[in-house]
């Protein structure tokens, strides 16, 4: 295993370079959390959340970094990270479209919305389009069942959506659709 301290994480820009030994100051935010958690091993899931917030996804380097900091075997960190659905290992697209597929949204036709966006932008649910412009996700239930079907676009929760309104929304931000 290579020494992560001297390696840079892909995606770090010059402005983010600084004093952190990795050359990427975003690790400072992870360190800050680790310190506050007193490097307790049961803080693994919380730490992974912080790391994903900071970096947008969990690269192999980040997982190894967290494993070392918490003195856990990398296999365990990898096992935990891959067990939970919310952790992602690929960089996210510029825009994200999450369609809720909870029961209420299912009854109200959420599957058609997923299919339409997926077909229009050639992006399977759970993945990012080839040009990196759009990530299409499904959620199990966002708990806004009174507003079904619900779509979350770039963090904005939108209720009572249908295929047309969602495609319009995505086209407005990502463009294309043809």
């Amino acid at each position: 295993m290579s020494d992560t301290r001297t390696r840079r994480v892909a995606g770090a820009t010059d402005s983010q370079q600084g004093d952190h030994p990795s050359g990427d100051n975003r690790f400072d935010l992870v360190d800050k959390h680790l310190k506050r958690a007193r490097y307790e091993q049961d803080q693994l899931i919380e730490t992974l959340h912080v790391a994903q917030d900071v970096f947008g996804y969990l690269s192999e380097d980040i997982l190894i970094y967290v494993a070392r900091a918490l003195r856990l075997p990398p296999s365990m960190v990898y096992g935990v990270a891959t067990f939970y659905h919310l952790f992602t290992f690929d960089p996210p697209g510029d825009h994200s479209c999450t369609v809720c597929t909870g029961t209420a949204c299912f009854v109200k036709g959420a599957d058609d919305i997923v299919q339409a966006v997926s077909d229009t932008y050639s992006v399977p649910a759970g993945e990012t389009s080839e040009d990196g412009s759009l990530t299409l996700k499904t959620a199990r239930c966002l708990g806004s069942c009174g507003l079904a079907p619900v779509v979350v676009f770039d963090g904005n929760v939108l209720g009572h959506q249908d295929t047309e309104s969602t495609l319009e929304l995505v086209a407005g931000a990502v463009g294309g659709g043809g």
Binding site: T101, T103, A104, R140, C141, G143, C145
Partner: peptide
């Protein structure tokens, strides 16, 4: 950990 889809009482 209210995981049932369609439930949001606890939230």
């Amino acid at each position: 950990d209210e995981g049932d889809p369609g439930a949001y009482m606890d939230r």
